[in-house]
Simulated scan of single mutants.
Amino acid sequence: MQSNFGHARELLEQAWLQLPGDDETSVKSRLAIDILIEAVPTGEHSKPYRQTEIIDFKRAAKSK
């Protein structure tokens, strides 16, 4: 099962917006969410690509 990084980022951004306060807990929470938001694309783009099978279309068409 593949992760939906775009949706995860969207949810983190929504969580960030729910903490507009200037109190210490809100500020620290936003900083922590900022780190997570930055980690999502880093993780998404650093994972190795899985190898795919290249199909020879001429051979595939002949077998049908």
Results as ranks from 00 to 15, higher is better:
M1C: 10
N4R: 09
F5M: 06
R9H: 01
R9T: 08
R9Q: 13
E10T: 10
E10R: 08
L11E: 08
L11G: 02
L12P: 09
E13S: 03
Q14G: 02
A15P: 04
A15Q: 13
A15Y: 09
W16Q: 11
W16Y: 14
Q18T: 07
Q18P: 02
P20I: 01
G21R: 06
D22Y: 02
D22H: 06
D22S: 08
D23W: 05
D23Y: 03
E24T: 06
E24S: 07
T25F: 01
V27Y: 01
V27N: 00
K28W: 03
S29G: 04
R30D: 00
L31A: 06
D34C: 04
I35E: 01
I35Y: 00
I37C: 02
E38V: 00
E38K: 02
E38F: 00
A39S: 12
A39C: 02
P41H: 08
P41F: 12
T42R: 10
G43N: 10
E44F: 13
H45R: 13
H45A: 04
K47E: 08
P48H: 06
P48W: 01
P48M: 07
Y49V: 08
Q51F: 06
T52G: 11
T52H: 10
T52N: 10
E53I: 15
E53S: 12
E53L: 14
I54P: 06
I55F: 14
I55W: 11
D56S: 11
F57M: 14
K58R: 10
R59K: 15
A60I: 07
A60F: 14
A60Y: 14
A61L: 14
A61V: 15
K62N: 13
K62A: 15
S63T: 15
S63P: 07
K64S: 06
K64V: 12
